[in-house]
Design a protein around this nucleic acid. Structure first.
Lengths: 333, 333
DNA sequence: TTGTAAGCGTTATCAT
DNA sequence: ATGATAACGCTTACAA
């Protein structure tokens, strides 16, 4: 049994192919009677339209492309869930691509997605500093694009980001008002603008409290061993009261170091971190976190994208700033 | 500037469309000279083939579909990473779909994927008991299929699963040989065959040690509150020496209960669990785990799938059994 | 309300 | 080595 096509249906029903097509697309020009016959046969024979033929003809794919830096990262999977939900609601399909934090892979994915396969792109960039050529390419091809979370700034592109500056400012201010003045900030990779903003929020809070000289910033990377060494050095040399981690990975490192050195959190040192991991509350002690609503971010970004798709790009650029949730748990005292 | 097509290239180069097509596909019939000219222009004009036209004509999409029950589950994201890697190596694209543990959604996804959009399907089923009609549909349409991790058994389909019976048997035997006889098994949802196998491994180990009467099985669900109640009841009424959790969620529940009751793990009760979460070693105390190599499972399943795709289905069915890694940490004493 | 013809951008077949 | 023609399955414009 070969594939059922419109032609087959048309032959059986003794109708023309366009009539069958229109009937299945519920066109107003077709009589109810015919529609009924067509639909029944289509159902009986399990007809499925060939998506390639339709896309080729209509020059639309009913698919959107989601590009994330990492697929096994809880934050991004939460985003994906939100994106998926909205796509489903619009009857769109989703192609998920991971750049694995590689700008080259990211560029090649984008190159690949700009061949017409998708009607729109959602992008969160790889962390390494990188070119924006591939992004220009999307714009040039007039493919709707929305950036989220990790964005290249100053581009004429809609974006959804979180209030990193504000949340870091708020946390730092709170810690200062609690009487802690020796707050160390663990910075992670400097290419990400949102981590830069967190750092700036921290610095601004110190400045606003006349404590700029208390600035204590440690630059860390994804080299775990090296991080451990640096965190130890920080603790020995500076004896910070609080360690403020710009990403959750560094909180784990800090916990490991404290355990090794026999330090108790929060008695000997307090810890607070940017983190979206659900296990934060199960750590020992439960970790205070600043988390973003990833699901909401996915939803919002996708909605912006569909807005563009529906308007065929004839709409203004929107930059959405989402709030963060600060959860104080035992680790920060 | 409109889209570059073969026709455009052909016009500029004063060649026919098929010649340009063949040149770009590196056909042996085309002179090096021509190939060079074509390739250069294509590159200069940034030509990208229209994938829909090619797929329509070739009746192949160079895409495979991955269906997972949950996208924000570390285990499945690890699998996805493995799948992605192999797909990339073969120059294939990947569409990731999540059934969100819903058999209906799963069926609709499969229905949707069987319209020719993908050249092969990788499937891990939703946990609820469900029909297999949609799976038959895949087979009927002769679309290559490989099941992984959560499989519908007794189907003529290649599959990659893990040795759940054996690992549960081994762990239980080890616990018994350590002198613990009161081992409680926390079962999670009974529709999943792999959890059934874990249970059976546990039971068989008891039986082989003549301890069938020591059987202590608690049925739990995804209702966290209820689970907490049941775990408390278990501890009060049966005072188990070890709690063996069939999934990691139940380990978290057990930890919560112990904390609430002021019980110390592993002194008051030991815990071991099936879990792939990377935070297991950061829990308090570090959790003993039985983990599967998810990445490897993804790779293996995808390789089986490509084997089928290349052979156009003319190949025998393979069932692959992967080993598990048992890591004893502090929680089990 | 239905049918005819043309076209979307490729690739396959058959000529030359 | 290259070209002419048809075909993949669908939708749209126009005709009837």
């Amino acid at each position: 049994m070969e594939n059922i096509t419109l032609k087959k249906l048309a032959e059986i029903l003794e109708l023309s192919v366009p009539t069958v097509s229109r009937a299945l697309n519920d066109s107003y020009e077709i009589s109810e009677e015919t529609k009924k016959r067509v639909r029944e046969l289509a159902k009986a024979l399990n007809y499925q339209p060939n998506p390639f033929a339709a896309s080729l003809r209509k020059n639309k794919s009913k698919t959107i492309g989601l590009v994330v830096p990492e697929i096994s990262n809880y934050f991004f999977t939460q985003i994906t869930t939100g994106v998926e939900k909205v796509c489903n609601e619009h009857g769109y399909h989703l192609i998920i691509c991971s750049s694995n934090e590689s700008p080259e892979k990211e560029a090649s994915i984008i190159y690949n997605l700009t061949n017409g396969k998708v009607d729109g792109i959602l992008l969160s960039t790889a962390s390494e500093a990188h070119q924006t050529e591939h992004i220009s390419r999307i714009l040039q091809k007039k493919i709707p694009l929305v950036q989220f979370d990790r964005v290249v700034e100053d581009l004429p592109v809609s974006a959804v980001i979180s209030n990193d500056f504000e949340s870091a400012y708020d946390v730092t201010t709170k810690l200062l008002s609690d009487g802690h003045t020796k707050i160390a900030f663990l910075k992670y990779r400097n290419e990400l603008t949102n981590i830069e903003k967190r750092l700036n929020g921290y610095l601004k809070a110190l400045e606003d409290n006349g404590l700029t000289d208390k600035k204590l910033v440690v630059e860390l990377t994804n080299n775990e061993e090296n991080n451990i060494t640096e965190i130890k050095r920080l603790i020995f040399e500076k004896k910070p009261e609080v360690i403020f981690c710009s990403v959750s990975l560094l909180a784990i490192g800090t916990y490991d170091v404290c355990k090794e050195l026999g330090l108790t959190i929060p008695d000997d040192v307090k810890v607070i971190a940017y983190s979206n991991t659900p296990t934060a509350r199960h750590l020992n002690p439960p970790l205070s976190t600043i988390s973003k609503s990833a699901f909401e971010m996915g939803v919002k970004a996708t909605e912006l994208l569909f807005y563009q798709i529906k308007r065929k790009g004839e709409c203004e650029i929107e930059k959405v700033l989402l709030g963060s949730k600060i959860t104080y748990r035992k680790s920060s005292g």
